[in-house]
Amino acid sequence: MSKPGIFLRKAVIGDLPAIVAIERESFVDPWTEEAFLQALECWAETFFVAVACGEVAGFIVGGIEDTGEAVYGHICNFAVAERFRHRGIGAMLVQSTERLFAVDLAEGVQLEVRVSNIYAQAFYRRHDYQPVFTIAGYYSNGEDAIVMMKWFF
């Protein structure tokens, strides 16, 4: 899936400054550059950037998790730069990552979202994610997280 002038590719080390900048404008407790570097080392196959107008417009970090009973994808971090939002870039990133998880035989995808982030929750609901439970005090400021899941079958 692509849109004119927008494409997805695997993230590379040179993308980290742009990713960190997007992270800082998007979250109150942003990941550090070191955290993204570790993610790039661990999940290079499922760490993508969206490029628009020649610059990094968004990113998604995910990985496959095997509990021994189930295999599922986990979206660990995802954001689109404010000036590029509402152009379908977020949907491109999420759907492409979901397809990779499905190819790896994941049964579904899990993610965490702040209880207060109603816009993100609405986005995920539009993409067939459902809230499954809440984790009390998940975030560094003590805010709860809603775990949302999308099943592939």
Rank of each mutant, 00 (worst) to 15 (best):
Q38D: 14
H74N: 15
A120R: 04
Q95W: 06
E25N: 13
V12N: 13
E107R: 12
C53P: 01
R125E: 07
I22V: 13
I19E: 06
G63A: 07
K150P: 11
W43M: 05
P131V: 05
G142N: 07
M149E: 15
A52D: 00
I146R: 03
S140I: 15
A91I: 01
I13L: 12
G58V: 01
A79F: 06
R99V: 07
E65G: 02
A106R: 12
A106M: 14
A91F: 11
F47W: 08
A79I: 01
E69G: 10
A145P: 01
G62L: 11
Q121E: 08
C42H: 11
D144W: 11
Y129I: 07
W43F: 15
Q110D: 13
V71C: 13
E69F: 15
F101L: 04
A50F: 03
A35R: 13
P17F: 03
V28T: 13
D15Y: 04
K150E: 10
I22Y: 00
R83T: 02
F153C: 14
G63V: 08
M149R: 15
I22L: 05
I19V: 14
D66S: 05
L37P: 00
R125T: 13
C42P: 02
F78G: 07
G54W: 09
D66Y: 09
F101R: 03
R87M: 10
D144K: 01
A91G: 15
F153P: 04
R24D: 03
Y139L: 10
R114E: 05
A44M: 01
I13M: 06
V28Y: 11
L105P: 00
D66Q: 03
F48S: 02
A70E: 14
I89D: 00
T97I: 11
G68L: 12
G62H: 07
V12A: 14
A81Q: 04
E82M: 10
A136I: 09
F152A: 04
P131I: 05
R87C: 00
N117S: 12
I89W: 00
F123S: 11
Y138L: 05
I146Q: 08
W151A: 13
R114I: 13
H127S: 08
T97P: 01
P131K: 02
I19M: 14
I64P: 02
E65C: 06
T46G: 10
S96M: 06
Q130V: 15
I118G: 08
R87H: 09
A57S: 12
W43G: 03
T134A: 11
V12G: 10
Y72L: 08
V61W: 00
F59K: 12
A21Y: 04
E34Y: 09
E98F: 08
V61Y: 00
S96H: 14
Y138C: 05
I19N: 03
E45N: 11
V28N: 13
I89H: 00
I75C: 09
A145W: 03
V94E: 00
F101I: 04
